[in-house]
Every structure is written in C-alpha cells, then in structure tokens.
Design a protein around this nucleic acid. Structure first.
Lengths: 230, 230, 230, 230
DNA sequence: GATGAATGAGGTTTCATTCAT
DNA sequence: GATGAATGAAACCTCATTCAT
C-alpha cells in the first residue's frame, strides 16, 4: 500500500474514531467499536494506530492542522486589511473553531495540558509510553506553536501599519487572546454547545464581548490609558 | 465510627489521593496506590469512596468549597470597598486559586465539562453510573453556581454604588470573567506552573492584563453599545 | 490466603488443566477453557500461573514429584530385598508410571527435551521468557536428577550385596534403563495406550522383555567386557 | 511451473524451514521468518505448504525417507552377511540417524505420537484440520511402517540362516529395538547432542550397550535362558 | 469495618492464515 | 504465482470494582 492509500485509510479510521468519541467520549470508547465503525478489525486498527492514545493524538493532530489551516485562510483573507482586523478575525476564527469542533478543541486542550510538564523540561511521569512512541506526538510537537507565531506576526504587522497601538508585547497579547478563547471554549463545553444559553446568557454575547475587548485592547488609546492606571 | 471520625478519615484519604493525582494524574493513578498512600487497603478505600470517580468528585467538591471560601473571604475583605474593587478582587482570587491549586482547578474544569450536557438536559451518555450515584456529585450540584451568584451580587452592588457603570448584563460579565480565568488557568497548566514563563512571557503579565481588562470593562460604557450593535 | 490454601487452589487448577490437556492437547487448550473447567476466570488463572507455559511446567513438576514418590515407595518396599530386585522394580515402576500417566510422561519428555541445550550450557534461544520466569522451572531444575540418583544408589547397593555383578558404570546402567523406559513410553503413545496392541504386539510383551533385559544386564558380566572392547 | 521446478523449490523451502526450526524450534518459528530465510514471501510459502503443520510434515516425510534410504543402504551392505549382523547394523543405523539428524528424529517422534490415537481408531480430537488435509500426512501414512517391515524381514532372514536363535516374535523384537533407539534418541536430546556427556556418561557407551544387548538378545542362548526365567 | 482473593471489562500483542490486486 | 494488507483466535495484562471471610 503506498503512502497515499495508507494515509487515506488512516483518515477513514480517524473519521470513525471521531464519531465514536463524539458519542461516548474518549474514555468510554472501545477500540473494538472504533474498528467496527471503521469497518475493519481491531488488529487492523492497531496496525494503523499502535494505541488508543496514539489514535487520540492523531485526531488531535488533525484538529491542530485544521486550526492552522483556518488561521492561514483568515490571514490570506485579511492580507489587504489592517493588521488589527486580521488579529481580531483570528480570534474569531479560533472561537468558531472551538464552537464547531468540540472534539478537536477538547483534544487540543488535553494535548496542551499533557505537554506542560514536558515543555517545562520537568517530570514526564504523566507521559505514557504510548504517547512517547506516537508519531503524532512528534508531529504535534513540530506544529504546536504555529498558531501563536502566526498571531504574533499579524500583531506586528498591525503595529507597523499603525492599526495596533498597544504597547503590550505581542506575545503577551497573543497568549492573552489564546487564554480568552480557551476560556470561551470551556464555557461552551460547560453549556453543552454554542447555541444553548448558560444561566440564560447567550454565548454569542460572550463571543462579541471577547472580540470587542480584543479590538479595544489592541487599538484604542482610551482603553489603554485606563489599563496603565491599574 | 461516628460521623466526625469518619469525616476525618475521609479527609486523610482525599489528602492521599491529591498527592497521588498530583504526581501521576487522575487517569494513571491506581486505587491501590492511593490506598497505600493513605495507609489503608483498597477495600477500605472503597468503603469510603465507592468509585474512583467518586473520589475525584470528593476532591472536586473540596476544591469548590475552598474556592467558595476564598470568595467569601474576599467579599468580606472588600465589604466596605466599592463594588468594582471587590469584583476585580474576586477575579484575582480565582486566578490565584488556579495558580495555587492546579489539581483543584483542573478538577473543577473536568466537572463543569462533565455536567454540561446534563445541565442542558441532554444526553447523559457520558455521565457514568458511578458519577450519578456519587454523593459528592449531588453536593457539587448544590454549590456549583455559588461563585457565579456571588460575583453577580457584587457586580450588582457595584452598579448600585456607581463604581460599575457598564450596562452589560451582570451574568454576561460574570461568565466573561469566569472564562477569562479559565483560559488563564489553562495557559498556566500548559506552561507547567505559575512561575515558569511560556514563550518567555511571565504569567504575571497575563494576570495583570486580565485584571486591567476586567476593571476597564466594568468601568466603561463602551462595550455595552458594542454588544448591542452586533 | 495462606500458603496451604493457595497451594490447594493451585492443585485444583492443575487438576482442571490436566483434564483439558488430556482431551485437546497442550497446544489446542485455551486458557479460557482451563479457567472455566477450574470454575474461575481467566484473570484468576493468570494470577496463579503467569503463563500457559508455566501451567504446563506446574503439571510437569507434579508429574516429576509423583514419579519421585513412586520411586521412594518402591525403594522402601524393596529395602529388605536384594539391590537387583529393587532396580528392576524401579524400572517397572517407571514403565507403569508412563503407562498410567500419559500426560505426565509426555510432559516430562517435553521438559527434558527443552532443558537439553540449557543443561549443556548452550543457546537458550528455545527457552521462552515465560519458562525462564516460571517458578516451576526452577523447582524442576532442583529435582530433575532425583530419579537418576536414586537408581544409581540402588545399583550400588546391589553391587555391594552381590546381587548385581555387572561391572558397567552405575550411571551408564541407569541412563540405559531410563532410555529403555522412555522408548517404551513413546511406543505406548504411538499405540494409543497401554492396552492397545501395536502391529499385533501386546505392549505387555515389550515390558516383560525390558525387565528381562534389565535383570540379565545387571546380573551378568558379559556386557562389561563388550563395552571395553569397543 | 512444471513439477520438477516446483519440487525443487519445495526442497529449498524445506531446507530453509529446517534451518529455522533448528535454531528456534518448531513452536517458536514464524512462517514469516521461514519465508524470509527461503527468500520468498509468506504467501508464496503458503502456496507451497498450506500450513505450518504441513511444512513440518514435509520435513518429517523427508526425514522418514532419509531413514528408509539408510535402512536400504544398510540392508544392501549386509546382504551377504548373516541376518543378525544386518539387524544389529540396522539398529546402529537408526541410532546414528537420530544422532546426526536431531530435527528429523524429533519430527518422527512427534509424528508417531500424533498418529497414535488415530492409528488406534480413536478420538481424532488432537488431529488438526491442517494435518488431515496435508498431502505429506497421507504420504507418511504410506511409508511409516517401512522401517518396521524391513527390520522384521531381516530378523526372519537371520532366523532362517541360523544366526538369530531368539524365539521372540520378530515384531516384538523389532518394536523393542525401535523403543531402544527412541529412548537413546531422547537421551541424546536431553544431553544436547551426541558428543556432550550426560552425568559424565559418554553416549557412545549407551550406544554400545544397546548394540551389545541387541546382539545378545537375538543371538545368545545364555542370555535367552536367563530371560525365560524372569 | 478490614482483608486477600476474585471478577469483568477491555487494552495490547502475536501469529497463522487468507484476501484482493 | 507474487505481494501487502487484513483477519481471527487467543495469549497476555492492567485495573476498577466486588466478594467472602
């Protein structure tokens, strides 16, 4: 089987895994069932993904790739706009990604939570053998910082074109935006989905608020002078 | 064994569980090891906590209780201050709670992620029997909204005393603040801990930015109109 | 569970394994079925015997113990008889053991075939991990030479009491007798069982011939010179 | 591919199988490795030998053919000698065969152990489908008795030429000789090989003893009268 | 209540064997 | 026929959970 075919089959399997994980969650999903959903046997499944962990990482990788793609699309779309518009659009892109891809966003959070100690060069007690041996883990390590880098770059472009006047370090801005979206995503998951209000609050409102704050943070002097006095 | 004694022993067990979870994470923790850490046998452990899930929920409950306590303390501390100061302080309280109690904050997030569909009255496929039968699950359901309510109340106090001029619905504000802190907590966990910088960014900076944004948001009318115009 | 109880249960399990092996043979026997036959689950079976290999070695050990017991009984029975009578009786004991305990005699042969290279200090490629780690393998190594030693001793007694006049080295005699019995055992297994004639030959006749040869060999000086002239 | 070519390739494959079996034993040998050793793929291997069992039976068949060839050679060599000399020579031939061809002698024993119940017309539970369908199984059934028949014939010739005076039934004699050699072969395998002494006993001594006993059994009146009194 | 043994469920692995191309 | 992928069966293993004493 050539690489293309194998890759295509891998995709079908991850598709199946996504369907199963969506319904019963990662922990309750059985490899047997995932295999059945993919129309293959357990052993074949294992020949593609050496562990359940690895399968989840493959899904995570797919999620991160999708997110990166969307970032690139947004950047391309806004290449002739002001930097600030692009940055705000990126934040919206991320929020929409989380709304539309619950499984992926959860997976990404799980991933970032998992790599923490490692990234800090500390104990790897929580990193299972299966994870360490996963090729997708390696692949993820390679692209995990891309969203941050892209955002930083756009902030810098905004600073250059004058649309972004904030003096805050671009990486601080980026991480703050990232945190904002993650919080939003978690609140979504706590509410069930995008459309269901939580405490009678429409999540749309939270989203708009986030976007408004982001824009204000990046581009308004008024807001800025306020911040400085904190 | 009277209630007091039993309760004391339960506490010792949760203490042990926290130590074990801290080192290897929830998933990799074995009931056997937790029992050993607590100096009891597995069966005794089960006589106190009917499932691993339940034990985790007990820990979660302890975390939420601690958070609530800290909220009450902060509110008490700021009872003579302006509402806005108290609300900002509450946000800081929550952020510090997350920094200082990684395990609890993760547990709380897991909990809120878990109850989502349920709270929305939807599929309970992901809710295990163990969870449904857990007394701590019931207990958590009782107090899970307390932080929100307390925050909303303080925002209202701030609106009354004029320190908060934002026209944004207090619950929207609260959820937004909540999301902000959760994002911050997740970024902390992705960095390993409070003190380790991520991308050379001090987490202190993110925290300050969050506090600044919160204050600005509460103290300005700017965003209200923005929400309306969406 | 104290040692006695555990040991008793081990015995019940080996009983069950013997029944299953008898019917379908070692290779075709499934651990699942053996567990069922013993009235326990597969996991419990594994908690007693860490591998199928180990279980077989336990059975082998039991077989060797039984053989040794029978040797001791025969020796005790013949303690007041001439040495030659005892040695011949030992050979008969072994032949009967093989007739009556097909499974054990096969297991013993498998065992001796397996340890060959090892005993010669050579390649252990054929020794599986499961075998090396088996406690029964260690136990077997300890007692595997007992039958030989007992036989040699009785031959020496016969030489001392004058009933055995052969000058052949007792160990050569012993090994020759051992080989004789093994050959007999294999012919039995090739015939199906003790009672079924092979090529219209009653196995009883072979047995009697063996005993006759043994007695003649021990009681004559004829063969000693023959060995020398080779 | 014509029959000759196919047959030649079959031979190459069995050669490869012998090499692999020699190193790791039958059970531990993987079809994958055998195929690799033969320079073909697994599926091609299967197109020649429908099962691992069948491959082993092919090897067994080759072994039995070799043994038969050697019997014929010995008989031809001794066609002008006395019958007793030929019979003793056949026994030596068989012993040497076992020494020199460990794999074949083990295979033959496995084979004879396997056919036992079948030959006795009893349960065939232990006979796998693979075996039943193997063409080599059929071939083996055809020639399995040849060594016995040849031996019986030579014993009868010896009785006719007066060199063999034993009144024991030729088939009993034959089976006894067969058993003797098998026992010898098993002792060899328990020692590792022909040259390694077991318990400081040279296997040469056992061999000579066997030959001496055989000759005495067949040709000596003295030994015989002794036997009768048993 | 405490204990050691047992259970059930499912993840992982190894191979002989077969299928599709 | 040859090939790589797939299958089925069963060994093996880990753990949360429960049972019997």
């Amino acid at each position: 089987m050539n690489d293309a075919k194998r890759s295509a089959k891998e995709n079908l399997i991850v598709d199946a895994a996504e369907r199963v994980f969506s319904v019963v969650g990662f922990k309750n999903a059985k490899m047997e069932n995932i295999a059945a959903e993919a129309g293959i046997t357990k052993v074949t499944l294992y020949s593609y993904f050496q562990s359940k962990e690895n399968l989840y990482l493959a899904l995570t990788y797919r999620g991160l790739q999708l997110l990166n793609d969307k970032y690139y699309q947004t950047i391309d779309q806004y290449k002739n706009s002001k930097g600030i518009d692009c940055v705000v659009a990126l934040i919206e892109t991320f929020m929409d990604f989380c709304s539309d891809n619950y499984l992926y966003s959860e997976a990404l959070l799980d991933y970032f939570a998992m790599v923490r100690s490692t990234s800090a060069g500390k104990d790897t007690a929580k990193l299972t053998e299966a994870t360490k041996e996963s090729i997708y883990y390696t692949k993820l390590l390679d692209i995990q910082n891309l969203p941050f880098k892209l955002t930083v770059k756009e902030i810098q472009r905004g600073q250059e074109d004058g649309s972004i006047i904030s003096k805050i370090d671009p990486m601080v801005q980026t991480l703050h935006g990232w945190a904002t979206v993650i919080g939003y995503a978690k609140v979504i998951s706590a509410s069930g989905d995008h459309a269901t209000p939580l405490f009678n609050v429409s999540l749309k409102d939270i989203k708009q608020l986030n976007l408004g704050v982001a824009r204000a943070l990046l581009g308004s002097t008024q807001f800025h002078s306020q911040l400085e006095t904190v």
